[in-house]
Design a protein around this nucleic acid. Structure first.
Lengths: 130, 130
DNA sequence: CGGGATCCATTTCGATACTG
DNA sequence: CAGTATCGAAATGGATCCCG
């Protein structure tokens, strides 16, 4: 879907374009691992790669590295390399990352309050559409 | 990733399990189209399938239908079929769906405030990692 | 009009092996 | 220790055809 094209039929997408800030934010925190990394760092403060890997058990090296790179690029966390032997790398939320953490926590609150309703709705739906 | 299994190695995932309410919420609103549907219905009130399809230009039948079914199942919107010829189907947010809309709007506010910082961080990162 | 069913291209992601 | 590189399985999503 080439919505980045300025002209042509795609121009009608505007308000719902992928370049819309809120959509791009959802692309970030909607990611399976990104939000977990942010929450982990929010709880644990400064953490090493291996600590994150253990905390977020189930994530592959590839995904963890990829996620960390993305979040670093977005300025949500910092990556500090200590050139010892063996190498030591620490990750930590930036102030920007911490403000996002707060936003995610508000999301979490909605979830805790309303997910039971969602579950009930699902159960009812599944019962009627057996 | 079989995190739903109660026992075995997967049991260590607990706090970060996919069954956690906040994670399941992210699975919903993190979806490419679900949030757009919610916002569209929030702005437009009751809408027909074809209206949604036009408003969220770029979505395929398959994805729109699939998204609507999912949101209906979650109790976030209602689906009303008028058995005329041709058929008419209207979708509308439930109160639960509207409360989620508010949550999404708060996300949107974070995005509007902070995405410029994210963009700046990206530009800086890309400059240093050419 | 509002989809359901199917096929196929793309993307995503985990497992594995290797490196400074 | 903290990655990078590569490969193949699997999920995702769009296009197309069909129907009530």
């Amino acid at each position: 879907m080439d919505v980045t094209t300025a002209d042509g039929p795609a121009a009608r997408f505007d308000a719902f374009a992928a370049s819309c800030p809120s959509r791009r934010l959802l692309d970030t925190i909607g990611d399976k691992w990104a939000s977990l990394v942010i929450v982990a760092l929010g709880l644990g403060g400064r953490m090493r790669y291996s600590e994150l890997s253990a905390r977020i058990a189930g994530v592959s090296q590839k995904m963890l590295t990829q996620t960390l790179r993305g979040l670093e690029r977005d300025g949500l966390l910092t990556r500090a390399v200590t050139p010892s032997v063996p190498v030591r790398v620490d990750y930590e939320l930036t102030p920007l990352g911490q403000s996002l953490l707060e936003t995610i926590c508000r999301l979490k609150e909605w979830a805790e309050v309303h997910m039971p309703e969602v579950d009930a709705a699902r159960a009812a739906y599944d019962r009627n559409h057996a």
